[in-house]
Design a protein around this nucleic acid. Structure first.
Length: 230
DNA sequence: CTTTGGATCGTCT
DNA sequence: GACGATCCAAAGG
């Protein structure tokens, strides 16, 4: 993974990251879905309105990991692009698990055991105990183990599976510090990746800046997959 | 199968 | 004070 490659426009870099490996300690996943965010030129980018404490990493050198926290409970991971001083990034949206599947599953299901029944709060859905549910209900494992295809098939899921939190914001993905690394094992990106608009955006969602590996079962939101052209 | 609503809190207005 | 680059389960067809 030459750093110079990552210094380019996120729209150019993003599809090139398909089929690269993301490594976190013993856990390895192959990148199968990405989105580009073009900083100051992109209304949907966290950096559109300039530098803040939260998005500072996006303004740093390329090849670093930008991690943000959202929806009060989820983390998402990006590869920083463009030269230092210019904000831009590629959001990693899905991985195909390669190794360390047990650790990924454990990380993804730990909240079932960890979730203590909240005192007064009631909840209709989710894993918190609803009123009247016995305590042992939340201390047991989920009814079924998560299928492999759901371990890292989403931007927040992959962070949970690999244990990526805001503590890892800013680490260099090319040197492997803190156990996080981007690796090229020789598998080329798809010649003809799937392309669509980005997911979950209020602004600029129609721009075709989402790419995935065609046919991969780990890609999120399969229904949104529409390959342009022929 | 699709749709809907709740969870939950850091960040910026 | 409002709102997410989301996920999950329950409800509805």
């Amino acid at each position: 993974m030459p750093r110079g490659l990552l210094a380019g426009d996120p729209v150019d870099v993003a599809p090139l990251l398909l089929n690269k490996l993301l490594v976190r300690d013993g856990r390895v996943g192959r990148i199968v879905e990405v989105e580009a965010y073009r900083g100051a030129e992109d209304p949907a980018s966290h950096a559109f309105r300039g530098r803040t404490a939260r998005n500072a990493t996006m303004f740093g050198p390329p090849g670093r990991l930008y991690v943000y926290f959202t929806y009060g409970m989820h983390f998402c991971a990006n590869v920083v692009c463009w030269p230092e001083g210019v904000a831009g990034a590629v959001l990693l949206r899905a991985l195909a698990p390669v190794s360390g599947l047990d650790a990924m599953r454990e990380a993804r299901t730990a909240s079932w055991r960890g979730a203590a029944p909240a005192g007064g709060g009631r909840s209709a859905g989710g894993r918190a105990a609803a009123g009247g549910v016995p305590p042992d209900r939340v201390t047991t494992a989920p009814p079924k183990a998560l299928p492999d295809r759901q371990l890292a098939s989403g931007p927040a899921r992959l962070c949970q599976a690999l244990g990526i939190t805001r503590e890892l914001d800013g680490v260099d993905l090319l040197t492997g510090h803190r156990g996080v690394r981007l690796l090229d094992d020789g598998v080329a990106p798809p010649e003809r990746p799937g392309v669509s608009g980005r997911v979950g955006l209020r602004l600029a969602g129609e721009l075709p800046w989402r790419w995935w590996v065609p046919g991969d079962v780990n890609v999120s939101r399969a229904k949104a997959q529409v390959v342009g052209g022929r």
